[in-house]
Amino acid sequence: MEIKVLGCSGGIGAGRRTSALLVDDDILIDCGTGVADLSLEAMARLRHVFITHTHLDHIACLPLLVDTLFSRLQSRPLVIHTRSDCMRIIHHHIFNWQIWPDFFELPERERPVVRFEEMDAARPLDIEGRRVHMLPATHTVPAVGYRVEDDRGAFAFTGDTTSNDDLWTALNDHAGLDLLMVECAFPESERDLGRRAGHYCPSLLAQDLVKLRHRPRVGISHLKPGAESETFEDLRRRLPERDLVRLGSGDVFKI
């Protein structure tokens, strides 16, 4: 598998793109502003979008992506995978004819260009040899993470979450993990705000990483603009034994 970071920032600004990962050339995990940097040809190769949760920085490009690909999707719809409650939020608040056309009914209700498939926490989804598992997350809205594996290895993306024993238990239930992409949105100076917002800060993430029995490379995402270096360096001091990398748009990992 090849994983390309299209966006991983906790905000926008020069060089900053919000959450989106491209797996090989046909799967997206989240659909933040990083998707806008794909060429039209690259967008046309997309077949599946896995959504972690419905906050705007993770779905901002979803309605624009569908609109851009509308004519191409009439023969093969784009499949959106997430929890049923997340999909209801997207349908009600985005594809509602007021914010954006309801592409679940276009060009016709019987053959829409977008199709929804509910994820089952107990059953991984197989997409041409890549198995996608849903992971628990704790956030201010319904949220999940994802673990993706093939016969060579596995990576996981937490999406947005704060301290959550179930996440680490789920990761430990599998035999291995090569790459973990985990958020650490807030600097330690804003620990209380981070907890209320459902995000990690360095001390909370350092405490939780001890629970992980695997030793993957750990990519840090969702750093808040202006505090990126402060937060990442704090993490490195707290976790000197871990292989940490500060994620950036354009980073590519091969599993």
Rank of each mutant, 00 (worst) to 15 (best):
T18P: 12
S19V: 02
L21T: 00
L22C: 10
V23G: 08
D24P: 03
D24R: 15
D25K: 15
D30Y: 00
C31G: 04
G32W: 06
G34N: 01
V35L: 13
V35H: 13
A36R: 14
D37N: 15
L38R: 11
L40K: 14
E41C: 04
A42H: 07
A42L: 05
A42T: 07
M43V: 01
M43A: 05
L46D: 00
R47K: 14
R47T: 01
H48P: 01
H48Y: 10
V49T: 00
F50Q: 03
T52G: 14
H53W: 07
H55P: 00
L56M: 13
H58F: 05
H58T: 03
I59L: 05
C61G: 06
L62K: 09
P63R: 12
L65T: 07
L65V: 03
D67G: 08
F70P: 00
F70E: 03
R72S: 13
Q74V: 05
S75Q: 15
R76N: 11
R76I: 01
P77T: 01
T82L: 10
T82E: 08
S84W: 09
C86M: 03
C86E: 04
I89E: 11
I90E: 00
H91L: 08
H92P: 03
H93L: 10
I94E: 02
W97T: 10
Q98N: 08
Q98T: 10
I99C: 11
I99K: 12
W100N: 11
W100D: 02
W100A: 14
P101S: 07
D102L: 05
F103E: 03
F103V: 05
F104L: 13
F104E: 07
F104Y: 14
E105N: 14
L106G: 13
L106M: 13
P107H: 07
E108C: 11
R109M: 08
P112I: 00
V114A: 04
F116N: 10
E117K: 15
M119P: 02
D120I: 03
D120Y: 03
D120G: 01
D120R: 14
D120E: 11
D120V: 03
P124I: 01
L125H: 09
L125M: 14
D126Y: 02
I127K: 12
I127Y: 08
I127H: 11
E128P: 05
G129V: 00
G129Y: 04
G129P: 09
G129L: 07
R130D: 05
R131N: 10
H133K: 04
M134Y: 07
M134H: 09
M134G: 04
L135Y: 05
L135V: 06
A137W: 00
A137K: 00
T138V: 12
H139G: 01
V144A: 15
G145M: 06
Y146T: 02
Y146E: 00
D150L: 03
D150P: 10
D150I: 04
D150W: 06
D151V: 07
G153Q: 06
G153K: 11
A154V: 04
A154E: 04
F155P: 12
F155S: 05
F155I: 02
T158H: 14
T158K: 08
G159T: 01
